[in-house]
Nucleic acid binder design. Sequence first.
DNA 1: AGGGCTTGTGCAAAAAAGGCACGCTTTGAT
DNA 2: ATCAAAGCGTGCCTTTTTTGCACAAGCCCT
Lengths: 295, 295
Amino acid sequence: MARSLPPLNALRAFEAAGRHQSFSRAADELGVSHSAVSRHVRGLEDRLGAQLFRDLPRGVALTQAGVRYLAALTPSFDRIAEASEMFDQRPTGQVTVDAEPLFATKWLIPRLGDFYARFPDVELRLQANSARVDIDRYEADLALRFFHAGPDHQTAPLLSDAPLYPFAAPTLVPEPLAPEALLQLPLLRDRREDTWRRWATLTGCAPPKGAASDWRMRARLAYESALAGYGVLLASCEIAEGDVAAGRLVQCSDIGFRMGSYHLLSAEGVTRRSAVRLFRDWLLDQSASLRSSSK
Amino acid sequence: MARSLPPLNALRAFEAAGRHQSFSRAADELGVSHSAVSRHVRGLEDRLGAQLFRDLPRGVALTQAGVRYLAALTPSFDRIAEASEMFDQRPTGQVTVDAEPLFATKWLIPRLGDFYARFPDVELRLQANSARVDIDRYEADLALRFFHAGPDHQTAPLLSDAPLYPFAAPTLVPEPLAPEALLQLPLLRDRREDTWRRWATLTGCAPPKGAASDWRMRARLAYESALAGYGVLLASCEIAEGDVAAGRLVQCSDIGFRMGSYHLLSAEGVTRRSAVRLFRDWLLDQSASLRSSSK
DNA sequence: AGGGCTTGTGCAAAAAAGGCACGCTTTGAT
DNA sequence: ATCAAAGCGTGCCTTTTTTGCACAAGCCCT
């Protein structure tokens, strides 16, 4: 781009002076002495090589060039001021967020403290559903949903694409195990996917046979079962993070894979509401921070 | 208005940094060290109370708030830069100006030196006509015309509304005269107006009778006749100014009146051409300077 | 393991901005 | 007519801001 702008403080001084048609009043607005404004304007005129003000018997008046210049500067400064005010106001409003139950519990809620701290006046309503139906059905502004890898969620911003690793309670797996040994333990399976088959393939082991001890259930329940020490679970490392840190789970292997990713869906036209925009921005920042710091 | 803007130099630093997603490259663009940019951005974040950049393993990335802020700042700075470039370029182009003959000779041409000096690359074409027909008929971009006092030229910018005073060659009037004595001299009259009658009324004298020595002619010729010492003329003091300064004319009385004013007419849509805008601006500045300094 | 690239920070120097006091001119009021 | 007030320009000095440099730390790639 390589713009070369005149001194910005001088521009601001000129803008105020032009608006007031008076150096003194401009100085007043800017909270400086009239001499400061006078210097700024003179400096600007020298630099631009054009006269911006004309002397009046008493006071000053803009030249035509000054008028033109001012006409461009004032809206620009206005816009900058307006954008800057964005940060002053304490945001308020309501946001309704619908997240998948496991993701809500283990990913979203642990981070919400930061949001509450930053924006205590925003009222957050949390719902937990997994169905991939229209958000509007749940009357939610935003929805956090899982998508299998593929091109069909291109438009929805990414929240988490952390890979799946095997996790288990330390009571069940006190120390790291080889993949073969791991596959002999009770395997907690998702109700609808066979993630263990894929994992076994990755490790080069034979795909595990179904056993009486292998339970199939919803992700949320499978996770609780793993915490209770009933078996080994394939879970997103971002989701397991908290329980690993607390010593309630251990990662049983370095081998993992990406089955899909969590994305953020927005209800129609809802981003016009500032509280929703705020939460959305915060969420994406959280996600981006997470992905840039780890990995 | 009383805006309160963040430090503008910090804004510029942030804008460049955001655009490049890199403090170093921004510093490069701004011609400063990276530490200056770093400080500016941090200062801005502190002042706004919001995070604008997020640390990346290597480098930085905008937060969502940063993205939003940048989206407002960049166009503003662009606009400021664009407006500022106005002053760099040496203007070129052609302008065709049509002025009333006397006004052209005695008012416009003496000031044109300033225009030539400032904008040597603008080609100026000068025409002299008085008829108040469509400018387009003369293929002129701008026209300088006289209007009698009245509301019918409201839209056209004022060039000169200097009042009329009696002027004569010093050979004819070596020293100030009383109005009665003045009215005894040969009176040069405009072809179509009887300005002397009005002047006499102002002074309280009896209106002058027409005499064999009173000539009626176009303003331009009447003026030349006055210069030649053939009689007394009622003329705008701005027009006579040059010849008074040169000693070729003297103002015979302090009593004067405003009969009308000169205004600037623009051909349709012609202000889009930069050379025309330039001349127009220059002309209006000349006029404004003249009126603010005298009087 | 090491060089290259990027950002953060302490310290001192440089530059910009600012204030004050004064001069000048015009305006308006006593 | 004189005098005060309002405006702006300018020289001089102080204060504040900005900057550069040097160094440290972290990460990436070879």
